[in-house]
Write a protein that binds this DNA or RNA. Sequence first.
DNA 1: ACGCGACCTTACCCGCGGGTATACTGGCGA
DNA 2: TCGCCAGTATACCCGCGGGTAAGGTCGCGT
Lengths: 221, 221
Amino acid sequence: MGTDPTDTAAPRATPDEAAGDLSPWSTRPDPEAERRAKRMAVLRSAARQFNEKGFRATSMDDVATALQVTKPTIYHYFASKDEILFECVRLGLSQIREGTTGAAERGGTGLERMQAMVHAYALSMTHDFGICVSRTGDAELSPESRAKFRALKREIDDIVREIIEAGIEDGSMRSEDPKIATFLVAGAINWIARWYRPDGARTREEIADFAVQHLTRALAA
Amino acid sequence: MGTDPTDTAAPRATPDEAAGDLSPWSTRPDPEAERRAKRMAVLRSAARQFNEKGFRATSMDDVATALQVTKPTIYHYFASKDEILFECVRLGLSQIREGTTGAAERGGTGLERMQAMVHAYALSMTHDFGICVSRTGDAELSPESRAKFRALKREIDDIVREIIEAGIEDGSMRSEDPKIATFLVAGAINWIARWYRPDGARTREEIADFAVQHLTRALAA
DNA sequence: ACGCGACCTTACCCGCGGGTATACTGGCGA
DNA sequence: TCGCCAGTATACCCGCGGGTAAGGTCGCGT
């Protein structure tokens, strides 16, 4: 049993000093990178099932069995179902934010930045966590998570609105009500998550490109 | 008790013949109109709560107590929670369909019909049952209801797409992919249900008017 | 060697909520 | 005056699912 010398690992060099844990030697199977990888696997699997069956209709047993483990294993990595959902939408929102802020900070006219922004945003809506953002209603989160969720979504809306306002200011765009225009644009993009299918007639990129074309036409001066 | 002659009704004329039940005399408190009114009250109350808290988070007790009755009373009028949700979305969808088909069948260019269609559709998304349509995911319905729900939604999409295609044909509109354009337009409109608040800065009509202006600009030739 | 701690299991708890069995009431027709 | 039926209530059932208690195993550092 325990006496079997399964010496599968590489030569274990005795760390000549307490050189921290950065040494590429040390323990082979990684300290906590594995933990993060497992957390990530849980989130991916959960997000996919949430998107398919809905959050409430997906039980923790569903999440666990999809990963071939049992429920308490999941709870070893996450405190609650709410935390899992929140992490999913947080990941989705940070991906969207990276894309949209990247577009906002690049050079060019407002219209050009808008084009880059729509492209990045639309692409995000075809990936698991982005879909999760669109499909998750405020009601499914705990009050605290809901507050953070709303704040993060609001950030995205603000970025979009600021780009539109900048475009109006520099004359490359026009709209009588940038606030409502923002909601309509965001709605068209968010809704992609509801109908996009990976095996559909169009690729992600084609959809994103078309969304850019269609949505900017409504605002171009 | 029962001897109290509460003769609140109009003079009860003895029906001189078995003249059916169409006579405006006959029994005062109506035969089944009241039943329909009560069913409708249940649906209204349920829809509002579904929109506010979400379908799964709204219990049948919630629906009942909001109407100052108890659960079995609700089940006297509806067979299941699923039926209630389905009736809500059916009402919402038929309202949308009336508006959009009305627009499709009126005269004028494709663009003009599109304007009328967007206006009616957007208006529907600011009313209880329309909001219900937008917020209800396929996953919350039973398999049978889900199939019907999808078929009805598909009808709406078809109407929108046909208007767009007609507009392209008559030269009043242009788009490289009417199918995806339909989804983007429908998405922008459906999403209204997610952010519209009756006490917001804009009235329903203002929002609908602006949606017309914004969304048709993306497709006008 | 030994024990400790990370990890994963089996087995369980318990509240919530959809739905029901049953019984009471009041009004209408005969 | 009797019974029937629509309508409503009280009290209950029970399965589902989030979350936990407690124990086993493996691999590491000492």
